[in-house]
């Protein structure tokens, strides 16, 4: 059976993986944006900036759960992030 027929009746989902430094670790880029841009330009009220990388996948699968678990697996197994220093959260957006 080829993969096409397996995916019959499936839908396209948007899955986002957000990769960012663990919250216990310093984020120098966020700090610089906060201090040298926001604060120096007089923006007040912002206490922290942290950066992240967002990967946006379009996944064809039968269910929202399948799409999410596939991307979770991809992120973990293919080391799309380094678990030593980063966290990765996966979220399924609306169906396309």
């Amino acid at each position: 059976m080829d993969s096409k027929s397996l995916l019959e009746g499936s839908k396209l989902w948007v899955v986002e993986a957000r990769i960012q430094l663990k919250s216990s670790l310093k984020d120098p880029e966020g700090e610089t944006i906060l201090r040298d841009l926001l604060h120096k330009r007089g923006v007040s009220g912002v206490e922290e900036v942290r950066t992240a990388k967002l990967l946006r996948f379009k996944v064809r699968s039968h269910s929202r759960e399948d799409a999410e678990s596939l991307i979770r697996k991809v992120c973990d197994e293919l080391r799309l992030y380094n678990p030593v220093s980063h966290t990765c959260s996966v979220r399924v957006g609306e169906e396309v």
Binding site: P28, E29, T32, I33, D36, L37
Partner: peptide, 10 residues
Amino acid sequence: YADRLRAGAI
């Protein structure tokens, strides 16, 4: 500014 945000942006 270490090219943070984008090179030259800050």
